[in-house]
Nucleic acid binder design. Structure first.
Lengths: 160, 160
DNA sequence: TAATTATGGTTGCATAACAAGACCAATAAT
DNA sequence: ATTATTGGTCTTGTTATGCAACCATAATTA
């Protein structure tokens, strides 16, 4: 009767959710992108319980999404920062932010704006598109079994 | 002692998570993209408990992410399908899928492949980029208070 | 030097979320 | 007329989360 695991579902979405799909983890990662790097930072910004934060930080370390490093400022404090694997979650978080901007807060009421430090241009809305930058609507897309598909996945998409 | 709510955090990521941030919701939405539209479909594909599925479908209806419609095949069954608001979650799910493809299953072992029905081109990796299609790394990005920022948000990004 | 604060936790207990199976009513198929 | 399918509800047990108390170490202050 324990929680159902998603990592056996032969799906990258399910596998990702198994790692970061609980209520708190993605907010901890968000905070890391916003610049938080100590236990106290995360606590202050999120209002998360101590034991839950302890658990989430450990899981993120185990998953290789965060890593510990020594603070440079004379105090040898151990701080947290994103790894490459963690930084690669950025498009996911930005997709989430843009969806919330549009459907929850609404245009003109965005709590946080994403800007480029190296360009004067605006950040583009994230879209699913072809290599030739052709935007694709959901109806134009198909999901088919990939090279890592198991029997169940193949059957599922076969009978459609 | 009830669960902490995220919709007061003045953040579109947190707000989105309040709607779809539990263990199951995004998998239900994924299944809708894959073509599921009945209670039984979702059950079969996900192995989710009946009471949990009932709850999630109702929440998704309340949120306007799914809607009910009458089946056209003589039987007047009530089925579920994505609304525009729901379809707009596609970039989020594709980001998640691509992250899992890269960091969990690995290149060459993707369980599911996303293809275009209207073009022979490959689907592009989702990136954060400028309007001029310049890809931006996390270090090139800045988060600043937006027009909907409250006092807390402004203070937070001020002292950085 | 002694006392105090900051930091980063751990532990125990109460409530909320989730899983599993029994049950049930309305159709649809045989 | 009977059975199977569909789409649920309800009960019970387990896991996840929240909260407060406690604790150890290091840095700061008196």
């Amino acid at each position: 009767m324990s929680r159902k695991r998603f990592d056996t579902l032969n799906c990258s979405i399910a596998g990702t959710l198994e790692l970061v799909g609980d209520w708190w983890t993605l907010l901890v990662v968000r905070d890391a992108f916003f610049g938080a790097n100590s236990f106290t930072d995360f606590r202050k910004n999120l209002g998360i319980s101590r034991n839950i934060l302890t658990d989430r930080l450990q899981r993120l370390l185990d998953a290789g999404i965060l890593e510990k490093f020594q603070s440079s400022d004379t105090s040898k404090r151990e701080l947290y920062r994103l790894t490459t694997k963690g930084k690669d979650l950025l498009p996911l978080l930005v997709s989430m932010m843009q969806w919330g901007d549009r459907w929850i807060n609404g245009p003109g009421h965005e709590p946080v704006t994403l800007v480029s430090r190296t360009s004067a241009e605006q950040i583009r809305q994230i879209r699913v598109e072809t290599e030739g930058h052709e935007s694709l609507m959901p109806e134009q897309l198909g999901f088919i079994p990939g090279p890592g598909a198991d029997q169940t996945t193949r059957q599922r998409f076969a009978r459609k």
